[in-house]
Amino acid sequence: MSDTPHIEVKDLVCAYGDYRVLEDISFEVKRGEIAVIMGRSGCGKSTLLKHMIGLRDPAEGQVLYHGQDFASSSSKDREVLMQKFGVLYQGGALWSSMTLEENVAFPLEEYTNLTRSQIHEVVEIKLSQVGLRGFQKFYPSELSGGMRKRAGLARALALDPEILFFDEPSSGLDPVSSKRLDDLILSLRDMFNTTVVVVTHELDSIFAIADMALMLHADTKTIIARGDPNQLIQQSTDMRVTEFLSRKGGRFAG
C-alpha cells in the first residue's frame, strides 16, 4: 500500500455564493481509517461532506483521492472515482418508486456485468448484512425510518466501495440499532479495509468508531481540534472541545 493518503483535503473553502461556511480546511484520511467529522449543529459538517463527495465544488482548495484532484478531474474520471464511493444519506434517500431490491440492484445494473440472478444474490447478501433479509419486495414507504436507513446502507454497500461516507448515521435510530450500525462500520473496515468518513454529533458513536476525529466550529469556520476523541477529551485545553465531548455546557449555551 502506498503512503499516499486515501483522502486528502487541502486548504478547502466551502461557500454558498459569497457566504463562506468553512475556511482553511486541511486533513488527511489513510486507507482503512475511520474519520469522524463532528461539531455542533450548523458548524458545516454536512457542507464539508457535500464537498467531499462532489455534490458541491470547492470555492477554493482541493479534495484529492489517491492524489487525484476530484473537482478538476474530467467527468469520466469523476464517474470512475464516484463508483468507489458509497454514501449513506441522513434519511436513507431511497428511491421511493422502487422496491428495496431495485434500489440496491440499481448501482449493480449500472456499473457491473453481473447477470440478473447474480444481482439478485448480491442484493440478498447486502440486505442480509444490514438485517433486512427478505425485505426485497418492500417499498421504502412500507418501512420504518431506521429500516430505510439500513436499506440505504445496503445500497451504499452494493458496489463494495473503497470509501464509505455516512451523514448522521445514528440519527433516528434506537440505541441498539445505532450500536449495531457502529459494529457494522467497524467490521466493514476490518474486512474490506474500507475508508470511512462519518459526519455525526452522537458521542457514543464518536468514541466507539473514530480513529481520527475532526471538530468543526461555526465561529472560527475551521477545524478546532483533531485526533483520537478518547485522547482529545483528556488532553484538549479548548473548552469548546471538552464541553462537546463531555456533554457539558449550559442549555443552548453559545
Binding site: R133, G134, F138, M191
Partner: peptide, 17 residues
C-alpha cells in the same frame, strides 16, 4: 473476515416479511 461476512448473510428473515 470472510467467515464473519458469511455469518452476517445468514441472518434470520424478519417476521414482518
Amino acid at each position: 473476515g470472510l467467515r464473519r461476512l458469511l455469518q452476517q448473510t445468514e441472518s434470520a428473515v424478519d417476521s414482518r416479511v
